[in-house]
Nucleic acid binder design. Structure first.
Length: 623
DNA sequence: TGCTAACGCGCC
DNA sequence: AAAGGGCGCGTTAGCA
């Protein structure tokens, strides 16, 4: 066991927090202070120079880190990509998650090296001293002797923890964890590369949005302008305008709707009993009051303004660059998905909310590939439905995917009471009942996407209305659900089996062997715990699959630059001269991934991928 | 002023 | 009786 730990620091004269921002290396404002190597035997060394030589000496070796994306990112920022790629990276922190991923929250604050030491090195004589040292508030770069000692000890402890953690993993878990770990360099590089934003578009979209917001406010009489003079100023110059506080505040908006306008509230907050002003409440109110449509529109614009325009502008200012750096974290959600964060602990804006980026082209076009590259997305086709088909073994679902039929069409046919063939014929010949905006195909899609888990009729009806714009009555939705579960009876059987399995074993499990321990079966939590038992093997297997896809692409297409993850979609920057044939070949490789070999599972249905390419995110076209 | 809770909402 | 799940981010309200 060989562990590596990097201490980083701002270059003299730059802010302390730059020690956590590896992309600062490029501008010369942050650097590596030292690199330590430790073994679980207690041997260690630390160096402040010849990093490349050090890395070359590690070629072919297993090297353990604690939150490896961080350390590896610094090495990549220093230009050691080739050396980094020749090392087999492990992450003891992530391995610990593989062991202890649980519903229990007693471990907070989670996954620090100190907590790891407390958990895995309880009986070690040095534990107290180690924790004491970690608790000391030394400033990075401030005290060389302290940091050298600390780096060495961190490395030794990391190695020690790793040794113990690995003994608690099954062979299958270790295999899947290694697949995940192999993506560390790609993920680290994506953090360093960041996402280039088209700020000229930000500048051109911003006034359009603010003007519409301002105009809505005046029509509704909720502008912040308190005098005629101020109102005139807002009208003349939108840059002086500030967003209405009444519309932003749930409290003030409910006063407006339910007191001043005397509308009748239909839903209320769970916790405080306050009348709701959320999208659902407003959507139903909007049926009777046109003004409420304007409020809905205003709120949509407000989110776009603050989250997708102003925050990127804050990032640009803080970074001094048009490239933003959201921080990726592997195995971050308990199902194994990635998360991204856009702000530091001290609230500095370093990135943008990639995982929430609007589907709307107007916003997707703000994110652009590096010069000379195009945007390529590999997305796992109908991922959750296919995994559900496998997990449930439902004969009809399995049949659909085995025979390359269209799942949404199959469900559409079921609710129409038609045969699949007739439905497909209608689809091809332009039957409007099938193909229209909210027609049977669209309904089939909606039902498929919302029925894998236990959604109630009421909730599903609201979803149809609020998310899909379909105004349907309770009985219609009930009928959809009944038809769906009659068509695919294996799904409810899977629910029962998944709950029973989780109860019996104490954990839910993915096909890759990732576990989530479910401990709270009390009356209050039972529903939620059961839902996790159902959902975890589906969503978590999706994460396993995504990790495997990323690893395979990294292995076989090393020139594709991994850009970011969107759960069932892997996004890459690829050189402009790479042909469509090459992309299709890569897609085919993903389709052929050997789950028997990787997971020890014979898949009942193929897990397929789609590939799309374009000059930027908003212009992807499927190949 | 600084913090958390509550609410709301974007994505998968 | 009824109940999708998983996240991160931005705002206001309310408290110390």
């Amino acid at each position: 066991m060989l562990a590596l730990d990097i201490e980083t620091e701002p270059v003299k004269g730059f802010p302390q927090e730059y020690a956590l921002q590896p992309w600062r290396v490029q501008e010369g404002s942050a650097r590596i202070g030292s690199i330590a190597i430790g073994k679980e035997t207690g041997e260690s060394l630390v160096t402040t120079k010849s990093y490349r030589t050090l890395l070359m000496g590690l070629e072919g070796k297993n090297v353990i880190t604690w939150n490896g994306v961080f350390d590896v990112a610094w090495l990549i920022a220093y230009g050691y990509w080739d050396e980094v790629k020749k090392i087999k990276w492990f992450d003891a922190m992530v391995l610990w998650k593989w062991v202890d991923n649980s519903q229990r929250k007693e471990r907070m604050p989670a996954w620090s090296l100190s907590d790891g030491a407390k958990k895995w090195c309880k009986d070690e004589p040095w534990l107290e001293a180690f924790l004491e040292m970690k608790a000391k508030e030394e400033v990075a770069g401030g005290n060389d002797a302290y940091w050298e000692t600390r780096a060495k000890l961190d490395a030794i402890v990391t190695a020690k923890i790793c040794e113990k953690v690995i003994q608690n993993l099954t062979a299958q878990q270790l295999k899947s964890a290694m697949i995940e770990a192999e993506t560390i360099p790609e993920v680290a590089r994506s953090w360093i590369m960041g996402e280039r934003m088209d700020y000229s578009l930000v500048d051109s979209v911003l006034p359009v949005i603010t003007e519409e917001m301002r105009d809505i406010e005046f029509r509704l009489g909720v502008s912040n302008a308190t005098t005629a003079h101020e109102a005139a100023l807002f009208q003349r110059d939108v840059t002086t305008w500030t967003p209405s506080k009444v519309l932003r505040s749930p409290k003030q908006l409910s006063d407006l709707l339910y007191d001043k306008w005397k509308l009748k509230a239909k839903s209320f907050s769970e916790k405080t009993g306050q009348p709701s002003t959320d999208k659902t409440a407003l959507t139903y109110l909007a049926d009777q009051f046109d003004k409420v449509i304007e409020i809905l529109r205003w709120r949509e614009l407000n989110t776009q303004l603050t989250k997708y325009l102003q925050s990127p502008l804050k990032a640009k200012e803080y970074l001094g660059s048009e490239v933003v750096h959201p921080t990726p974290r592997i195995f971050s959600t308990y199902t194994g998905r990635f998360t991204y964060t856009s702000k530091t602990a001290r609230k500095f804006q370093t990135g943008v909310a990639l995982h929430q980026w609007p589907r709307n082209k107007e916003f997707r076009r703000l994110i652009v590939p590096p010069e000379g590259y195009k945007h390529v997305e590999f997305d796992a086709a109908g991922q959750e439905s296919r995994i559900m088909a496998h997990q449930s073994g439902d004969a009809a679902m399995v049949n659909v995917f085995q025979n390359n039929m269209k799942f949404h069409a199959m469900t559409g046919a079921k609710i129409a009471g038609m045969s699949y063939d007739a439905f497909m014929k209608g689809r091809e010949t332009g039957n409007s009942a099938i193909n229209s905006e909210h027609g049977l195909y669209y309904q089939g899609k909606f039902i498929n996407l919302s029925s894998n888990f236990r959604v109630g009729t009421r909730k599903m009806r609201i979803q149809a209305r609020v998310q899909y714009g379909m105004n349907v009555d309770f009985l219609t939705v009930k009928n959809w659900q009944d038809t769906f579960f009659r068509a695919y009876p294996g799904i409810k059987t899977y629910w029962k089996a998944a709950i029973l399995k989780a109860k019996t074993k104490g954990y839910a499990e993915t096909l890759g062997g990732r576990r989530f321990y479910l401990t709270d079966w009390s009356k209050d939590s039972q529903w939620a715990t059961e839902s996790s038992a159902i959902m975890f093997p589906i969503q978590g297997t999706g994460a396993d699959m995504k990790n495997l896809g990323l690893r395979e692409l990294a292995r076989h297409y090393p020139d594709f630059l991994f850009a970011y993850d969107l759960h069932d979609g892997l996004h890459f920057w690829v050189k402009e001269d790479v042909s469509d044939d090459t992309l299709i070949e890569a897609r085919d490789m993903l389709d052929q991934m050997d789950y028997e070999k990787e997971w020890g599972v014979q898949m009942r249905v193929p897990l397929t991928w789609d590939v799309s390419v374009g000059p930027r995110w908003s212009e992807l076209e499927e190949l």
